[in-house]
Design a protein around this nucleic acid. Structure first.
Length: 872
RNA sequence: GGGGGAUUAGCUCAGUUGGCUAGAGCGUUUGACUGGCAGUCAAAAGGUCAUCGGUUCGAUUCCGAUAUUCUCCA
């Protein structure tokens, strides 16, 4: 079976067991502060497990794109070195939400693996939870007995809490789990030792392929377990591993999931896979990382310098690094592999097809930029090494290696590789110490203590009423205290709320609660999964009271103006630039709006003018908002809606329509576009390959902006006696200024040359040195300098000391011909410093030319005399 | 969110106890050589040293803030 058939077999099997097949959620997670990427199949159902949202179907199955870069078994730096770890992988899963439990889950797992996919029973092992004294839990006999129907007792293994008790986090839903392992070793190996001795022992050929989790408890912050009213099943089977088992290979990378890419890489670097351990690792790293990067970019997550974008950048750079070091790629190459990946996986994930060009461009740009970083790093490293390494090899300090890494992004392993080539080494322990310090700093800064929710009132789901109302009566349903950096504040959740929680690029609302005359300020509102969380710096005296919740209406109104303007801008962009425009990000708050979109060149001034004019036209048309809060996804598409990217959609979506602009959007909008007043584009810039950013302001801000500029203009006009043609007046003025400037220079030049002649006449010779020491009338440091250098060129054996008053302050310059410096041991720097003391100043410079300033103008002549006195 | 850097000519970058007439390479322009292309040589233009404030006789250089950007950690 090829991988496409395997995927299909899984989904078809569970569809046959009354499961609803749903599509994979985006790999990049929004609205969950604890998670940047989907790292398990259950992520998109988290709200159901947490009880924040009812389940739409009680049985679901899917394949989910996941990304893991850290965790107990998963360190990014290990990926590629073995044959079965990945950054991005597919997780096949089936779920029961309060429906079937252990029995069906185990029976079906067996049916699929053994009866349908024909994995031999003698190669399979199951593990069950052995119990835990800490948590007062017994062994999971139920699971054991279910497995006994299919497997002999010596193929069932008791697993510890570490392996067989699954927890979502420190707190939350959890329960025992049962893993299915497959022994893929050759028969002679299997004869030597039974497979059960290798389960969970990191043997690459005895692997876990499916984990069946039975969620039956909730872990509280104090560590205690509480039985859940509804029990759930959550399973996850590694797709790539399943392919390896069914295709009879010894490595995930030998399956058709990866081989096409690896063949392409081998072709590009002109090496064969399977001939050299180091280049094999590099090829695996690249084949793996290519998937992670491409899927992230397709999901709209571009590489950047923090958060999720930074993780993507790091993965990409790791791939480049391996290619650079072990496959001798010195030019961008990863982008060329996207085509192969698309051919391989585009069927199951069509976003790879529609986004191919985008993905290629972004990857190429990133590769180029990282190769530049490497070049800079190599230069810096070269410079910090001694020119000839001492015999027996020098050692580069860990601090220096860390600076290269931390500040300049130069990978540590490259540092040590380059040093090895030079017969040197690097202090790795020192490097690690520095790294620990850095981590410590970050941890301390990020530490946040979150207490348990205090639940006041049980509700099924929070109701958001802020589309229609800005003031409403609410109850607090739960609250918790959060402490960060010695500052404490509270998270409040209401039964219903007029406050918009930050999401979809729109900033959260602020405002206040009021009860019994007591006000509680709401500083900000965030959306966490399906909860709308209000941030307050104190808890109301009586949290159980009925509150009036009041949104800051002015701020909200400005935000709405900007949000609707964003839709109009999106629409205008498509009209003016073409329908290839796709949203890549958006920020809307009460101050301004920011819109990132795909477009492959700079938007010209003329195009911007057109776009802005079009938006303002739409504003003046006073288009009335047409809002539909429950449209099926398909219906919305036929309406021509633009799907805002990265949102997590239910089966029903909200559609916002202004004239021909139709978008899926959860944000708040003006009743009619006229309210926006006007929009002004304030900037257009590039944020990444193929992505441009437009920033704009609307309504009051736009008006202020125009007023400020008009005021400025009229002020300038006023200064120019209210000229009729401002542009010409300024041009004339500049031209005149230019002319005068030149005249002054000419004049100064003449004056200086006059002074120069005079000075030449005043030369007196002391011991063969031509000495000039005078106070002159020049008031520019530059002019004095020029004069001094000219005289040096024209008079041999010169000793020059010039006093002048510059900007009201006395200044002295000393110039000594180089040969005089050498022969007489004179130093202009020391002379000038001594001389400046006469006028309460100081100075310095080089041996042949130095300057000094002072405070006491009346002592200028004395200072010049002092300087002269050094000539003997 | 926290730490460390960077910002100097159109581009890539040098520039240390604070005073070096602020430089290099590439690019641009001009001239010479050649039958033309290309090239070689010569010369020139091009700088608010990111912005604002402070210390100082004097700041590209030191200090602080801001902006932009890179990088590492969370």
């Amino acid at each position: 079976m090829n991988s496409k058939e395997i995927r299909k077999a899984f989904l078809d099997f569970f569809a046959g067991k009354d499961h609803q097949i749903v599509s994979s959620a985006p790999m990049v997670v929004k609205n969950d502060p604890t998670l940047m990427f989907t790292n398990a199949g259950m992520n998109q159902f988290k709200d159901i497990f947490l009880g924040n949202q009812p389940a739409k179907y009680v049985r679901i199955a899917d394949t989910q794109k996941c990304l893991r870069v850290s965790g107990k078994h998963n360190d990014l730096e290990e990926v590629g070195h073995d044959t079965y770890h990945h950054t991005m992988f597919e997780m096949l899963g089936n779920w029961s939400f309060g429906d079937y439990f252990k029995e069906d889950a185990i029976n079906w797992a067996w049916e699929l693996l053994h009866d349908i996919l024909k994995i031999p029973a003698d190669r399979m092992y199951a593990s069950v939870f052995e119990g835990s004294a800490d948590d007062k839990l017994e062994c999971d006999d139920e699971a054991f007995n279910l497995w006994r129907k299919f497997l002999p007792a010596d193929h069932i293994i008791n697993g510890s809490k570490k392996d067989n008790f699954w927890e979502m986090g420190d707190t939350g839903p959890c329960g025992p789990c049962s893993e299915i392992h497959v022994d893929l070793r050759d028969d002679d190996e299997r004869a030597k030792s039974p497979g059960r001795d290798h389960v969970n022992k990191d043997n690459p050929l005895v692997i876990e392929i499916w984990n069946l989790v039975f969620i039956q408890f909730n872990r509280k912050a104090d560590g205690k377990l509480e039985e859940l009213p509804d029990k759930h099943v959550d399973t996850g089977m590694g797709f790539e591993r399943l392919c390896m088992v069914l295709q009879g290979t010894k490595s995930n990378y030998d399956t058709d999931v990866f081989q096409n890419t690896i063949i392409k890489i081998a072709e590009l670097c002109n090496k064969k896979y399977g001939e050299n351990q180091k280049s094999d690792i590099a090829m695996r790293v690249i084949a793996d990382h290519l998937r992670a990067i491409s899927f992230s970019i397709a999901d709209g997550q571009l590489p950047s310098n923090n958060k999720a974008g930074y993780v993507i950048r790091r993965i990409l750079r790791r791939a480049v690094r391996y290619g650079y070091t072990f496959l001798e790629f010195k030019e961008p190459f990863i982008w060329k592999l996207v085509e192969t990946l698309k051919n391989n996986m585009g069927d199951a994930f069509p976003e790879l097809i529609s986004q191919q060009v985008m993905i290629e461009n972004v990857i190429r740009e990133e590769e180029e930029s990282f190769l530049r970083t490497l070049e800079t790093g190599i230069r810096l490293l070269d410079r910090s090494l001694p020119p000839t390494p001492s015999k027996g090899g020098g050692v580069l300090s860990g601090e220096l290696a860390f600076t290269l890494y931390d500040t300049f992004g130069f990978p540590f392993d490259l540092t040590s590789l380059i040093l090895r080539e030079k017969g040197m080494s690097v202090d790795e322990a020192g490097f690690n110490t520095e790294m620990e310090k850095q981590k410590e700093r970050s941890r301390n800064a990020a530490v946040q203590e979150t207490e348990d929710w205090v639940e006041l009132k049980k509700i099924e789901q929070v109701e958001f009423v802020g589309y229609d109302q800005l003031e409403v009566e609410v109850n607090i349903t739960r609250y918790r205290k959060v402490t960060q950096k010695n500052k404490e504040f509270f998270h409040l959740v209401f039964d219903r709320t007029p406050f918009y929680g930050e999401s979809g690029g729109q900033a959260g609302d602020s405002g206040y609660l009021i009860a019994d005359g007591q006000r509680t300020k709401i500083l900000d509102t965030h959306k966490e999964n399906n909860l709308i969380i209000h941030f307050a710096n104190k808890l109301p005296e009586n949290p159980s009271a009925k509150f009036a919740a009041i949104v800051d209406a002015q701020k909200r109104k400005m935000t709405m103006n900007n949000h609707t303007a964003t839709h109009l801008l999106d629409h205008a962009l498509r009209e003016v630039l073409g329908t290839h425009i796709e949203q890549k990000g958006s920020l809307v708050n009460s101050e301004y709006l920011r819109f990132d979109f795909s477009h492959f060149q700079k938007v010209s001034r003329e195009e911007l003018d057109k776009i802005q004019a079009r938006v303002n036209e739409l504003i003046r048309e006073n288009l009335v908002k047409e809002e539909n809060r429950a449209v099926s996804f398909d219906e919305a598409k036929t309406m021509g809606a633009i799907a805002l990217f990265g949102e997590k959609y239910g089966d029903f979506v909200r559609v916002i329509k202004f004239g021909d602009s139709v978008e899926l959007c959860g944000g708040t909008h003006v009743p009619a576009t006229g309210q926006i007043g006007s929009m002004i584009i304030t900037s257009e810039s590039a944020i990444s390959a193929g992505v441009r950013r437009i920033e704009a302001i609307t309504s009051d801000r736009a008006e202020e902006f125009v007023k400020k500029h008009l005021d400025e203009l009229s002020e300038v006009k006023g200064i120019l006696n209210n000229t009729q043609n401002l542009k010409k007046s300024v041009e004339d003025l500049l031209a005149q200024n230019n002319r005068l400037q030149k005249q002054i220079e000419e004049f100064e030049r003449k004056a200086a040359s006059g002074i120069k002649q005079e000075l030449k006449n005043k030369i007196h010779v002391i011991n063969g040195i031509n000495v000039i020491a005078e106070v002159i009338q020049l008031d520019s440091a530059q002019a004095v300098k020029d004069l001094a250098f000219q005289l040096k060129g024209e008079v041999d054996n010169l000793f020059l000391a010039l006093g002048s008053v510059i900007g009201g302050k006395p200044s002295i310059s000393v110039m000594i011909a180089e040969n005089v410096v050498a022969n007489k041991g004179l130093n202009a720097g020391t002379i000038v410093r001594e001389a400046a003391k006469e006028m309460q100043g100081g100075g310095g410079g080089q041996a042949f030319y130095a300057t000094a300033g002072g405070k006491d103008v009346s002592r200028l002549a004395a200072a010049v005399d002092k300087a002269k006195s050094f000539v003997k």
